[in-house]
Write a protein that binds this DNA or RNA. Structure first.
Lengths: 254, 254
DNA sequence: GAGGTTGCTG
DNA sequence: CAGCAACCTC
């Protein structure tokens, strides 16, 4: 089974790139983040024409997640509320969608960025702690968590860990929140195959970051112990296309 | 001598199209309208690299005219004031630039559109009447008036004159104002060679107007009797490029 | 730097 | 439908 996660930074702007990429990659499931579109405005046709089913949790301008699945998914839900109950407006931003595929509970996330302002940073930490409770509640099932976590878990996940020590996406509290998830028994399949640094999933649009490989690994898979990864890799090629997303896809074979 | 007029609807957005077109057309002078950029922000390099001199009268966001000349121009001036004196703020909008090329006084215009609101319509008529005084004052010289006049002089200059009878760009007062110019002794060289309808220079971006050739001929040359046109034609080909201007160039050989 | 928004002009 | 501006987010 082949699953990918990709923050596309607007599905409407990236539509041709995503469908072209999907045609050349035989995915069972594609998890999208930052679709930036309401469900009514989502471009459904190009995906249904490729034989995919769509499950959407979008809003206009910001955030938005989607599941693009070859087979129909079951038990699809959005946000924390279906598992944890109402969380004081935390689901107002569309950042979580989940569905069951062949017994695997796939949870597709867009973690708040948390930059520019302590309010947003606190919101991110609160969101990550709520995610911890959410995952704990579903761990009886086989869980595949994936998406844009906006956290580089370790120094080897940043091109220049010294310069960016303590920077948002690399602070101790963020890494601890992610560590608390791992402590529930989740593993990072990418690091089971690729221990060295230099592999990233996001490069700032500014200052020629991609050309100089000044990236961050902030898009991840996390698997519960029921699941055994066969392969996990990043596809940086799409970052070279004209008008790319700032993120590239990560693929997982189960 | 080969002269062209082209409303490019933003020189920054159309820069590659304009320079590419200029490379394949051996113009002596290119008259641009709706450059939509201040003189400081105008992309000068691409034109100087092609061996052209630039004379600019721009502003940010709206309007803006430019002369792009193979040879240096002399006696360049902007607006009505240098000829008529201050006209009560009529030169605040950058719509007129003129220069002398081999004894020909070329006047490059962007006439107000005049749509959506009687105030704007009145402004357009006032502007056209002021232009009449301006032309009258310079008619001792050989005059080549050109640009976006935002007026279809006759019914044969509209794809559907019945449906658009009395529409802005085809009202009697606008046509009379243009007629008053002609009465000073100016002639339309395009109509000396091409009497039939179906030749347009502008198509609305909306409703597939170009595909259906639902256009208007609103970009013109007008020549004083000193000047004899060898040829005058429209080049609609650039309207088929991706992200085209809504106007196409008109060319005049003298 | 590159997405998105609203509001304006054409 | 396609420019612009100003503003927001990442």
């Amino acid at each position: 089974m082949l699953i990918a996660t990709w923050n596309v930074n607007s599905i409407r702007t990236r539509l041709d790139q995503v469908t072209t990429w999907l045609e050349s990659h035989p995915l069972d499931l594609l998890c999208l983040q930052e679709t930036k579109v309401s469900d009514e405005e989502f471009p459904r046709k190009p995906f249904s024409q490729l034989g995919y089913h769509l499950y959407l949790s979008g809003q206009k301008s910001y955030n938005g997640v989607a599941l693009v699945s070859r087979e129909p998914l079951t038990e699809v839900s959005c946000g924390f509320a279906p598992v944890l109950g109402e969380q004081g407006g935390l689901d107002d931003q569309k950042r979580l969608i989940t569905g069951l595929l062949r017994g695997v509970r796939v949870v597709n996330l867009y973690v708040p960025n948390g930059g520019s302002g302590s309010e947003k940073y606190e919101y991110k930490l609160h969101w990550l702690h709520t995610l911890g409770k959410y995952v704990k509640s579903i761990l009886a099932e086989a869980v595949c968590l994936c998406g844009d976590f906006n956290v580089a878990p370790e120094d080897r996940d940043i091109h220049d860990p010294v310069a960016y020590a303590g920077h948002v996406m690399a602070t101790v509290p963020e890494r601890q929140a992610l560590g608390a998830l791992m402590a529930l028994g989740l593993k990072d399949p990418f690091r089971e195959f690729t221990p060295e640094s230099g592999h990233y999933t996001w490069w700032d649009y500014r200052a020629g970051s991609f050309r100089r490989n000044r990236g961050w690994r902030i898009d991840h898979f996390y698997l519960s112990s029921h699941l055994v990864p066969k392969q996990c890799w990043i596809d940086p090629s799409v970052r070279e296309l004209p008008r790319p997303s700032d993120h590239v896809p990560v693929l997982l074979e189960l």
